[in-house]
Design a binder for these strands. Structure first.
Lengths: 340, 340
DNA sequence: ATTAATTTTGCTCCCGCGTGCAAATTTCTA
DNA sequence: TAGAAATTTGCACGCGGGAGCAAAATTAAT
């Protein structure tokens, strides 16, 4: 095999090399790669050609080191069993990248691991940390803030009352009231609320809102069940053990789920293990509007979060130098389908 | 609210500060944070205390710049509609992080975007690039390799014949033969193969293998249909338009799908739009063994990829300094459930 | 107790690029 | 076309830490 030499790694083409090739100074070369620099079109062109020829690409590590801006944000995620995480990641990574932000992905195993995950991020000197997880309670946040190494700590798709974090989320209270009202008006009277893990803080207000609504309108507490993770499989087994022995009279007429991950697991088990029909025997609602909620199998009535708007707002926050309160709640949309 | 001052960002605690505090030189401080450095336990302790007090954490950008090792790998992903991607990401991020690798996540929009994604990675001087996507054909790979800026280019969960890349994947041929053999032995005679997008290269050998098997054993080509993305919703609509007008005689007796994403979409539409039963009217097989394949709803017969083993091998490859052929095929496991 | 062997520590010289300013060009004005 | 105004360019210095070696401090050996 002649002429099939393996490409060798050679990462040492620096701005100096390009400068010599183009006949300008190193600083002019670097300017050519910064969008805000003042440079004549003539030398820009010279640099471009030389860089192209040598295969030069600026080293962002060095740029970051010198400028104290990394253009890197850390994305701390857990809860990978929840299909909605895939949607969030897709949306965030796409929009962040479009705006010039690179992303450090950190899989945060559990609460005890959150500190290490944060450490990871701080060692890379990220400009901001985005939390898309359920393991971040006040204690963790305080630790992170105490380290004082993050310019911005953003809680995405989850509200937080911590004054030093930025929370970008859907308005859970408003949304769940809308769902509760729908459930009410459609004549359901024996709802069961299927909740996710009850973290000590920064958790969703969905359950509380629904319970309040029901108490207010009927004077009674709806039954609630909690699942220790947003995992369809786990939700399925919990729902099965909860409902398997019940007769028609004690069965709830609707299962209001904290999110689609739970609703999907519940749907599966209600149909295939309990042999009941949806929505005739038990109706179901979810939250998030994951892709499969719309599919022919689930046709799930759920609440769509305006993820794109939220992500767009997020990049706006990232780009801002101001130091004001960026917290913001978004309105989503109730998607009425066949499950309720 | 007294004493509630907002934590200020102050990222300027450097090794020099710690050195002064601990009464040692800067280099000793840095040594204290490297696991392979020779340092006395006495000064290690002094540094630890000083660093703790000042909240010092080494700057990995600077370390990377000086050592020419970033301990960063880029993960280029597309195809976010495929639920298996979430599983892959979880596994890879968990295992890579455990071994000290940080991850730069790059959402690669389409083929035209692959070059930019690669550029992103090279600007951060990642030590390796991991491709988990379908958009990376030979042309893209050649471009990437031509730039010579990556020590390792790893194609994960997909085979590549490019001699300069490292491919870590399941043995498609072996796996699909096993599936084909199962289909054959269970007496199915009118299979239809549901394939994904046909990229020009680095694609899966599943369809070819199945078609070959069938031709060899029956002398006839099985019907094949192709979906332009591994998206359950898209698969559903293609399957519907393909099968909707058929009568019992012309309907396939089994749908062999290139992966679970397609199988799931197909299942939904077969049940809920065509009103057929699985597996009595049409059986289905998938590939990947995504979480929902095991759930009560799908009970999908599929082929499980040994993702953990593959990821463990990947970190071994990353850590190796040798320059040999790291390509490797893994054996998975046929998971027989109710769908076929 | 000395000297040799070993471990620790400090230091010089980079890594590649941004900041801010002064010098050099270019463009504009009268 | 000279002189002023505006734009470009070059440069010293710094960002935070690693490699490799020489000096210093410990430990081992005789």
């Amino acid at each position: 095999m002649p002429n099939d030499k393996k490409p060798v790694f050679e990462g040492n083409i620096t701005a100096d090399d390009v400068a010599v090739e183009a006949g300008v100074s190193r600083w002019t070369v670097n300017r050519a790669f910064r969008k805000d620099a003042s440079i004549s079109s003539k030398s820009l062109e010279k640099v471009r050609i030389a860089a192209e020829k040598l295969g030069y690409v600026p080293d962002l590590r060095a740029a970051s080191l010198a400028s104290d801006r990394s253009n890197l944000v850390a994305l701390l995620i857990d809860d990978f069993a929840n299909p909605h995480k895939l949607v969030m990641m897709e949306r965030l990574t796409r929009i962040l990248r479009r705006e010039g932000w690179d992303i450090l992905l950190v899989n945060t195993l559990d609460r005890a691991d959150a500190g290490h995950a944060l450490l990871n991020a701080s060692q890379r000197r990220v400009d901001a940390v985005i939390l898309i997880g359920i393991q971040f309670d006040d204690e963790v946040l305080d630790t992170a803030l105490h380290a004082r190494r993050f310019r911005k700590l953003i809680i995405f798709a989850r509200t937080s009352r911590n004054p030093n974090t930025i929370s970008i989320a859907v308005d859970d209270v408003h949304a769940m009231k809308e769902i509760a009202n729908y459930v009410h008006e459609r004549g359901f009277r024996r709802p069961m609320f299927l909740a996710g893990p009850r973290t000590s803080s920064a958790h969703l207000l969905r359950k509380e809102t629904f319970v309040d609504y029901w108490r207010q309108h009927f004077g009674s507490e709806p039954e609630t069940v909690s699942v220790s993770a947003y995992d369809p499989a786990l939700a399925a087994s919990i729902v099965e053990t909860t409902l398997v022995d019940r007769n028609k009279a004690t069965l709830p007429d609707i299962l209001v789920c904290e999110n689609d991950a739970l609703a999907i697991g519940a749907t599966d088990v209600i149909r295939h293990k309990l042999g009941l029909r949806i929505p005739q025997d038990i109706a179901i609602t979810g939250f998030d509007d994951v892709p499969q909620a719309e599919g022919a199998n689930y046709r799930l009535t759920t609440y769509r979060q305006p993820l794109t708007d939220m992500a767009e707002y997020l990049v706006k926050v990232l780009g801002s130098e101001e130091d004001r309160d960026f917290d913001r709640l978004f309105q989503g949309k109730l998607m009425i389908r066949d499950s309720a």
